[in-house]
Design a protein around this nucleic acid. Structure first.
Lengths: 197, 197
DNA sequence: GGGGCGATTGAGCGGCCGTTCAAGTTGGCA
DNA sequence: TGCCAACTTGAACGGCCGCTCAATCGCCCC
């Protein structure tokens, strides 16, 4: 039970996430991964079981990290809607230089996985649903706090945010045109103005 | 100069398109392709040069086919805006059972290609830009025909359509929830009502 | 009917893939 | 200090990858 000289699981997941996020599941080879996370095949397979197993953990790690970033935005801004807007703006307009891809890792995986990797695909769908539900909860809180009219359907608005974010990030990858995205994003933020609708 | 017993290029492209559209570029092997298009490696490489070369033609074929489908919708409906709406509704709500993927092949390719396949990636970006420009032209015509207020910026509206379609198709793949997509699509169609704005 | 030539065939190349496992290394405990 | 178990290492496996090319086919013209 020595637990001798073990790797730093968090750092490994961070690095694996960056690589998968950049190249996608299929285009990332286990040798790429070995180099990126500085582990040999035996250790990787002992720790994660398979390439799919590692990817599974990466999907969860990524989702958890994004959720924490949202929490952080909410904590820094006073109002819930301000926090949400800050979070979305960060992803769309500021992360560009650091993030491994303009796209959301979950959306990218949803796009490339097929029935041949059924478990990863349904995992991805579940995490996207959880993300939407997370938005919905925060919007619900905004209504409860009087920031948003009680007329607003938080489930519908959460879905709209999800749809538009995925679309805008694709557009950013297609064109690299931040100004156009900034303009389009205003539509997205409009329903997040206090008292709107 | 005999051109003897040659394959039917159009049929080959149709079948290759279906396969690439379903599985994506990386996950489609040349052996999958050989079977799908019923050609042997030598013939494929003589005709298309490489897997990438075939994919390149597939991207163009797909874009051309979609553009023709839009033309057909415009011809069948009387008004331009009606034609556009019919086209978008078809893709979102009716193709589901026949199409190889809920997603647009161009958006899917944009997502999985990286700098390692730089030529295919820029090809994809160019075709997406052409699609947006195509929308813009039709919207411009709608303004000229008095179907749409001259206040509307056709470039901006075309961009919005592109963004929302990609987002909605992702959402459809994520959830399979046609009712939710139908509800969300109404926002998309609203600016396409005659005289809107 | 036979010769010529472009089109087609499919076995097979070198290489990378995901994965395994015998051998080696490390560190805590007696 | 010596032992054992936990952990790591990296060579190697079978298989699939994208692709090539010598051999064969089949049509057209003479």
């Amino acid at each position: 039970m020595a637990n001798t000289a073990k790797f730093d699981r968090r750092q490994v997941l961070e690095r694996a996430t960056r690589l998968f996020w950049q190249k996608g599941f299929h285009a990332t080879s286990t040798r790429d991964l070995q180099q990126a996370i500085d582990m040999r095949p035996g250790s990787i397979y002992a720790a994660f079981g398979s390439k799919s197993g590692l990817f599974r953990e990466v999907l969860h790690f990524y989702t958890e990290e994004m959720s924490e970033r949202l929490q952080q935005c909410l904590a820094e801004e006073g109002a819930i809607l301000d926090g949400l807007r800050t979070f979305l703006r960060q992803i769309l307009l500021q992360d560009g230089d650091n993030a491994p891809s303009e796209l959301c890792l979950l959306a990218k995986s949803l796009s490339e996985l097929d029935e041949g990797e059924a478990e990863l695909l349904s995992e991805t769908r579940a995490l996207l649903a959880a993300t939407e539900e997370n938005f919905r909860c925060h919007l619900q809180s905004a209504i409860a706090a009087g920031e948003l009219s009680a007329q607003v359907d938080p489930g519908l608005l959460a879905r709209q945010l999800q749809v538009e974010m995925i679309g805008l990030r694709s557009y950013l990858r297609a064109t690299g045109d931040r100004d156009a995205v900034r303009e389009l994003a205003d539509n997205l933020f409009a329903p997040l103005q206090p008292g709107s609708q």
